[in-house]
């Protein structure tokens, strides 16, 4: 018994499970999948909430209701920020690892049977990341908004999308988001090990449908403003 205790004492403290997840390629992809789910739920709710713009002042009321409980709002923001940070860090890290895994490129090479979305995840991801920064400066902080009025969300949206460049950037970003989700949503199931030959075709179709739905839903508001349907 004494010997056993002694052996236990010299065993170094094991790294946390989170560290083990980060260290392994499989674990890092699982972290990307879990954070991806969090971010997907956010964009889904965000898209549905955006559609309230077509109901006039409903959007402003919704924005007000979000701020009724500051603790909830900041918890949600904290979770989202953390999820985004882990997702981006893991994505960039894996992208660097990928370049190390094949230092000499092929003369001609085509990843057969793969979708364009799957091969461009890093670029669609960076496009969405860049857009999110701009979007926060535009609608949340109002720094780059032409006529920002705190609390008047619909007004801020309408004046922002009065500019063609803003609409083009927005639509390009949500198409990028669509591509990211088209592959990401199905890859999530694979990374978490819950896909198999029976479910995979259904998962892939659902992922494509949800990606299209989100892209169209998000693009509806700026296009409606641009073409005078809204505002």
């Amino acid at each position: 018994m004494a010997a056993a205790t002694k052996t236990l004492a010299v065993v170094p403290p094991r790294a946390s499970r989170l560290a083990a997840l980060w260290r392994s390629h499989v674990g890092r992809k699982a972290l990307m999948a879990v954070t991806g789910i969090v971010l997907f739920v956010f964009v889904l709710v965000h898209m549905l909430a955006n559609l309230q713009a077509f109901q006039g002042s409903a959007l402003d009321r919704y924005a007000e209701q979000l701020r009724v409980f500051p603790v909830l709002l900041w918890t949600a923001r904290g979770v989202l920020l953390l999820a985004a940070a882990v997702h981006v860090a893991a994505g960039l890290d894996l992208w660097v690892a990928r370049r190390k895994a094949r230092p000499v490129a092929y003369r001609d090479f085509d990843a057969e049977g793969s979708t364009a979305a799957s091969r461009t995840m890093i670029w669609s991801g960076l496009l969405v990341l860049g857009f999110v920064v701009y979007h926060l400066l535009d609608i949340t902080f109002g720094v780059v908004n032409p006529d920002f009025r705190p609390g008047e969300v619909l007004h801020n949206v309408v004046v922002s999308f009065g500019r063609v460049t803003a609409v083009v950037f927005y639509v390009a970003a949500v198409i990028g988001l669509g591509f990211h989700l088209w592959h990401g949503l199905w890859s999530t199931f694979q990374s978490l090990g819950v896909s198999n030959r029976a479910f995979t075709p259904g998962i892939q179709k659902t992922a494509a449908a949800l990606a299209t739905l989100l892209t169209v839903g998000f693009a509806a508001v700026p296009l409606a403003v641009l073409f005078g349907v809204l505002g």
């Binding site: 699982a30 894996l94 094949r102 049977g113 799957s118 995840m121 090990g193 896909s195």
Partner: peptide, 27 residues
């Protein structure tokens, strides 16, 4: 490298191994 579910591996595999083996490994 790591797996990003591209799927080209399974397409070129002479033995026809399916992508679900990767899901099982991850699980």
């Amino acid at each position: 490298g790591h797996c990003t579910t591209i799927g080209a591996c399974s397409r070129v595999c002479p033995a026809g191994i399916q992508l679900e083996v990767i899901a099982r490994m991850n699980r």
